[in-house]
């Protein structure tokens, strides 16, 4: 028990060091950095959402460098097909066709981060393949079952642009532990640095400033299990989490109101059991990162929006205002339900 405590303590120091390394190169994004760190230790996939050029890719590349292990990246395009992720064929110098492993298979079991850029530009067939890989961390190809036990999928999408994009189905969204909004920092000094400090002009060189392999990617699964077992959730907290879940299904019953929205018609489907389970996993990690052995309501609040918002299914009439309404709804739920 004592050794587990010590081990967890050492890992926490490493996790905080990773955060610190990332914050050195990606400025003004402390909250997303904390959330991604949380997702890494909760072993959950992450979807980043934000405008163009806000540093989503740089952020993920910085994390990838800090985690270590195999890293693969694919760009979502309208003509991308599922098999493009698995293999690619070409004519070799010898004039004969060759088949090479695609991005998913190239690193084998060492694949630590699979970065899917602009995921909403890929077709639903690609989403479907990714869905399985994300859920089961396996893939059948070349008459063989391939396993990716350490893989985390980091994806990003641009919410503003809708042309030539495919909305990610709710089943695929549900596979992501978190959807994290990335916004331009409000701090004027940081904004000025981003423009004038030449350090930020070259993303490749910037990412190289992150210390490599701060974490050991192949030990993350073990430490994640130990962490989840170690951090406790009291009966009061369980009841509170349950109330939150029920409120996402029927917010009107809990007296949640949103101006200009018929709350009775808003939610078609609340958070899924998988979603709530992921939320509590993330909350446990947040408690651990804050040096606690038990989850508090504030740990849930720290991850509630990012782990739940993208799982809610709204009436089509409200889908266009999804981001804004989801934020108001979840804030309303947190404000309405008390613990104890």
């Amino acid at each position: 028990m004592a050794s587990t405590d010590t081990q967890l303590s050492e890992w926490r120091n490493q996790a905080l060091k990773l955060e610190s390394e990332i914050n050195k190169v990606v400025v003004g994004q402390a909250t997303p950095v904390r959330l991604i760190t949380t997702a890494i230790f909760a072993r959950g996939h992450v979807l980043l959402e934000g405008d163009v050029g806000v540093g989503k890719t740089t952020l993920l590349r910085a994390f990838t460098r800090g985690i270590g292990g195999g890293y693969e990246r694919v760009e979502g395009t309208i003509d991308l097909m599922p098999n493009d992720l698995v293999y690619h064929t070409y004519l070799g110098e010898d004039g004969r066709p060759h088949v090479d492993a695609g991005p998913l298979l190239r690193e084998g079991e060492n694949l630590a981060v699979f970065f899917f850029n602009e995921i909403n530009r890929a077709r639903p067939q690609v989403h479907s393949l990714l869905l399985r890989v994300m859920a089961e961390r396996t893939l059948s190809a070349f008459n063989k079952e391939h396993h990716f036990p350490h893989m985390l999928v980091f994806a990003d999408r641009n919410q503003v642009e809708k042309e030539e994009t495919f909305e990610i189905p709710s089943a695929a969204r549900d596979r992501f532990m978190m959807e994290i909004p990335i916004a331009v920092p409000n701090d004027v000094e940081i904004m000025e640095n981003l423009i004038f400090d030449t350090r930020y002009h070259n993303a490749d060189r910037l990412v190289e400033n992150v210390e490599q392999d701060v974490l050991h990617f192949d030990k993350l699964n073990t430490i994640a299990v130990a962490l989840q077992d170690h951090v406790q959730a009291s009966p009061t907290l369980r009841k509170y989490a349950l109330e939150l879940w029920l409120a996402t299904k029927d917010p009107s019953k809990y007296g949640v109101r949103i101006e200009g929205v018929d709350i009775n018609r808003l939610v078609l489907a609340g958070a899924s059991p998988r979603g709530m389970s992921m939320m509590l996993r993330a909350a446990r990690v947040n408690a651990w990162l804050n040096g606690r052995d038990a989850v508090l309501p504030t740990d849930i609040h720290a991850v509630f929006h990012e782990t739940v918002a993208h799982r809610l299914v709204f009436s089509p009439v409200y889908e266009m205002r999804r981001t804004e309404i989801a934020r108001e709804l979840l804030s309303g739920i947190v404000n309405t339900i008390s613990a104890p």
């Binding site: 009291s234 907290l237 052995d293 508090l296 309501p297």
Partner: peptide, 11 residues
């Protein structure tokens, strides 16, 4: 105190 009473008895 609330944390001790409801969430983390040893805190």
């Amino acid at each position: 105190l609330s944390r001790t009473v409801f969430f983390e008895p040893g805190a």
